[in-house]
């Protein structure tokens, strides 16, 4: 375990891009954790101008650095509060998707035979489903009419299809590693199948798994933003995508640039952080894989 951690440190030391990605991720993590505590206003709090009128559609001012929404709410605070949902969906979907995908890939690639056939057919079905419509339908079905699905359903829905790419790639990698002589060596030392799979093969597939975790996060966030933008988000757990949805339905999308850009840019930066971290693993992970 210790050496795996040391490995990760090594990988990021070498990659400037990875460092930037990691930094961005850290910023968003902080934002998600303490955002609500440092925001100047509450997310639903209606703000008033000096003369007691609702501060609607106000472009950036000293008091509201990102301006206000059509209901007079502070955009800046909203961004800070809603980082949490986006972050949670991104991270959890990715982790669940990769956990299932990687394990299916490992078992399928290693044992082959009927198990492999079965899992690969399931994967084929998953590939047959269009991603976004599937998530939308799932949410619509579970939302019980109105209000959009809850965040839990969203995470599951995204993970339910996201695992497929990890599974395929991990399986291919496992099938090639399985042929390597050190696996035979491990067998000759009495290793049981599970031991060989999880102690010897899995760590050597780790670079790919971490890469796909980063990429899955990207996909999860983009999907979440799309889903909420289309109106399927849950107002109880609003996210940045939800903010964009609000801009849209309030008809302000053509002029309220101060309301659009902050959440949009945050989404882009979050996705970028995922890509950059993925790059770090590709850059350094790949030659390392060859070195194996």
């Amino acid at each position: 375990m210790r050496s795996l951690l040391a490995n990760q440190v090594q990988i990021f030391k070498k990659s400037r891009r990875g460092q930037i990605g990691l930094l961005l991720l850290l910023v968003f993590f902080i934002m998600a954790s303490i955002g609500p505590f440092v925001a100047p206003y509450g997310p639903q709090e209606k703000c008033f101008t000096g003369d007691e009128a609702l501060a609607r559609f106000s472009p950036p001012t000293a008091g509201h650095i990102f301006g206000t929404t059509w209901e007079g709410r502070d955009v800046h605070s909203q961004v800070l509060y809603r980082a949490r949902s986006t972050f949670l969906v991104g991270i959890f979907s990715a982790i669940i998707a990769v956990f299932f995908g990687a394990n299916i890939g490992l078992l399928s690639g290693y044992f082959g035979g009927v198990l492999d056939d079965f899992f690969m057919r399931v994967t084929d079905i998953a590939y047959g489903m269009p991603f976004l419509p599937f998530v939308l339908v799932l949410i619509a079905l579970t939302s019980g009419g109105g209000g959009g699905g809850n965040i839990f359903t969203l995470v599951i829905g995204i993970a339910a299809l996201l695992w497929r790419t990890t599974a395929r790639t991990v399986r291919a990698e496992v099938m090639s590693i399985k042929q390597r002589e050190f696996v035979t060596w491990a067998r000759s030392k009495g290793g049981s199948h599970l031991r060989i799979l999880y102690k010897h093969i899995a760590p050597n597939v780790l670079p790919i798994i971490t890469l796909y975790t980063a990429l899955s996060m990207v996909w999860a966030v983009l999907t979440e933003a799309s889903v909420t933008f289309l109106g399927f988000g849950n107002p109880a757990t609003p996210s940045w995508g939800f903010m964009l949805y609000r801009v849209f339905i309030s008809g302000a999308i053509s002029f309220a640039w101060w309301w659009i850009f902050p959440p949009a840019i945050c989404i882009v930066l979050f996705v970028l952080s995922g890509f950059l971290i993925g790059q770090a693993y590709e850059e350094v992970g790949n030659p390392k894989m060859k070195q194996m």
């Binding site: 050190f182 035979t184 060596w185």
Partner: peptide, 15 residues
Amino acid sequence: VQMIFQDPYESLNPR
């Protein structure tokens, strides 16, 4: 009964 393999680099877990 134990075995010694041909390619010492390939036959040991690199990690």
